[in-house]
Amino acid sequence: MTELADFGVFDVLLALALLGSAWRALAAPDLFKATVLFIVFGLLMALAWARLAAPDIVLAEAAIGAGLTGALLLDAVGHLRARRRAREEDGR
């Protein structure tokens, strides 16, 4: 019973949300949506590390995994969109 108390409903939901957000980030056809889902995945992952009592990895995951990588990916999506828009305007 005590072992069950250690792993509660929250952890099961967290694991399911991790798998769900990971799958949707991979499967999303829209790059912007995929990037946002990747950031969501990173923040959920940080929560999972917190539940596993690894505070150092929580900090690294939240700051580098979700924050900086997410910002870089968003930047890349912006560049790709700008390039596509410029190409469409040239073709017109």
């Binding site: 150092d56 900090l59 700051a63 580098i64 924050g67 900086l68």
Partner: peptide
Amino acid sequence: LLWAGAFRPGGAFQAGAVLAAAGV
């Protein structure tokens, strides 16, 4: 974070990431 790294979770990489986020 840089100062805390000596005795609790923190350290150069996390502090650098926060600085970089400020830059972004």
